[in-house]
């Protein structure tokens, strides 16, 4: 019954090792690009969500609810396969000439994560006393400028731990990009499995990669919350 032979050498050197390494690279690229974009988009949506202009606020609200309440996998399929019919031919041709699998994964991850980030930022802003905004406005700042210089910098600082959590989720969620052929680490682990039937070794490698990534990110949050949120070492 126990006739499975471990062969760790297969994934620690040679062709399959190279595959796994290239998978790690793609996972990191995908995650980093999406983290940056989703933060910017999330910030924008959060500001829109708190705008005084009703249609803008409603749009942001609808955006938040829709993208938070549909599975990421469905969104990935939609951007990759479903967007074709509703985009102009020229745009499609251009997208197809690029590495569209990667782009579609970035779009899906960015939009999905930005909805969560916007909510986190909004609760961060809510925790800033109202008087600050009033003071800024009475000092002659416009609404957007008060946001930009007074409210958001503080809110973002408070929001950093939950934000980093979202980035961690994003890195893990990037595994779903394998369904549209993006050769990230989960995809490569599965490739190694189907070429060598050494699933145990391949999945162990991928699991370790994610764990290292998570531990690194979690350590950052811990460090940050210790240093920044509690500079006096109170509590």
């Amino acid at each position: 019954m126990f006739n499975y032979k471990f062969d760790w050498a297969i994934i620690t050197s040679g062709q399959y090792f190279d595959w796994l390494v290239s998978g790690v690279k793609v996972t990191l690229e995908l995650s980093i690009v999406s983290v940056v974009l989703s933060f910017l988009l999330g910030l924008l949506i959060a500001v829109m969500r708190m705008s005084n202009v009703r249609p803008v606020r409603w749009f942001a609200h609808g955006y938040l609810e829709f993208f938070r309440n549909t599975p990421l996998l469905v969104q990935i399929f939609f951007w990759y396969f479903g967007s074709y019919k509703i985009l102009p031919t020229a745009v499609n041709d251009w997208l197809n000439s690029t590495n569209f699998e990667f782009t579609a994964a970035v779009i899906a991850l960015t939009i999905y994560t930005s909805a969560f980030i916007a909510e986190d930022i909004r609760s961060g802003v809510r925790s800033i006393p109202k008087e600050q905004m009033e003071a800024a406005r009475s000092a002659g700042f416009s609404y957007l400028r008060s946001m930009q210089y007074i409210i958001l910098p503080q809110a973002v600082r408070i929001t950093i731990p939950p934000l980093i959590n979202q980035f961690l989720n994003l890195a893990k969620n990037s595994s779903l990009a394998m369904t549209i052929g993006v050769a990230e680490i989960t995809y490569q682990a599965r490739q190694v499995e189907s070429y060598t039937f050494k699933g145990f070794e391949a999945f162990t490698a991928a699991t370790l990669v994610y764990l290292i990534l998570s531990v690194a990110i979690t350590a950052l949050v811990t460090l940050y919350s210790k240093k920044m949120l509690n500079p006096m070492g109170a509590r």
Binding site: K172, L176, Y210, S214, V215, T218
Partner: peptide, 14 residues
């Protein structure tokens, strides 16, 4: 924390 550190997809494969 280990479970929270890996994607659901990995849990499914395991």
């Amino acid at each position: 924390n280990v479970i929270r550190g890996i994607p659901l997809l990995m849990v499914i494969f395991w």
